[in-house]
């Protein structure tokens, strides 16, 4: 088994009086794509938000061996976790390039930021054409690419994507996932992927975690998930 990048121990999370996650123990290996699957409302988004420090938590989260549980969100980002929230989360009023520069906020050196932006443009050439356009005027697919681009600008060690395909046309989705898989392969970037399209998620990931009712129901190699009849019936519709 490869080395673990992120690990949660007895993690609980929720909003105010509402508890969403209970006793979550997951491990995210280095250099791989891990798919996080489960029904709507199972707690997938909450798990990402808990890791990013966007909701109240109990238990422990270890990133690269050191605890990040009580850190502020921006400090967690500085440790090397990039999080593309659901619903895109672009900075709608800022230009495409400013969006990317915000992603590079933690990069103190101007030259490093400029190089980062060129790297993003090489992954997403469409963004370069629209660099001076207001992000809010981009199409859904372009906004998602911009959000991922902004996350990559952080130079993260873990990229968390929350339903990147949501509301996008199939053709765009395929393009997006090709790029995501490509980034994982060429740069060895570890990715935690929340995805509604379970088949897509399982076939592009090495490992998978199934969350049901706020708890981990199963985890292991994605291939095993694909071969399991229960999973197929419940989540793949076949």
């Amino acid at each position: 088994m490869s080395e673990m990048l992120l690990e949660t121990r007895a993690l609980g999370a929720g909003y105010g009086p509402v508890t969403v996650l209970r006793d979550i123990a997951v491990q995210i290996p280095k250099g791989q794509i891990t798919a996080l699957i489960g029904a709507n409302g199972a707690g997938k988004t909450t798990l990402l938000r808990a890791i990013s420090g966007l909701c109240a938590t109990s238990g422990d989260i270890l990133f690269d061996g050191s605890p990040i549980t009580r850190l502020a969100t921006n400090r967690i980002a500085a440790r090397g976790i990039a999080h593309v929230p659901d619903g895109r989360g672009t900075l709608a009023g800022l230009s495409v390039e400013d969006n990317l520069l915000v992603g590079g906020y933690l990069q103190r050196r101007r030259a490093a930021r400029a190089a980062g932006i060129e790297r993003i443009y090489s992954h997403f050439p469409k963004l370069k054409q629209r660099r001076h356009q207001q992000a809010g005027t981009l199409s859904g697919g372009e906004q998602q690419m911009l959000a991922i681009g902004r996350a990559l600008m952080q130079g993260p060690r873990l990229l968390m994507l929350d339903e990147p395909s949501f509301g996008l046309a199939p053709l765009i989705v395929r393009e997006l996932f090709t790029i995501i898989a490509d980034i994982n392969r060429t740069e060895g970037l570890s990715i935690l992927l929340v995805e509604q399209n379970v088949h897509q998620a399982l076939s592009m990931s090495q490992r998978a975690i199934l969350i049901e009712h706020g708890q981990v129901a199963r985890s292991g190699p994605s291939a095993e998930f694909l071969g399991n009849d229960d999973i197929r019936r419940a989540y793949l519709g076949s």
Binding site: A72, G89, A92, M153
Partner: peptide, 25 residues
């Protein structure tokens, strides 16, 4: 300035700004 950019980001979408490492508070 990058501080000014961070401030515009904070005004535009504080959650996304935070997730990008901007110390919004």
């Amino acid at each position: 300035t990058s501080l000014g950019l961070a401030m515009r980001a904070t005004a535009d979408n504080p959650v996304s700004a935070r997730l990008s490492g901007v110390p919004v508070d």
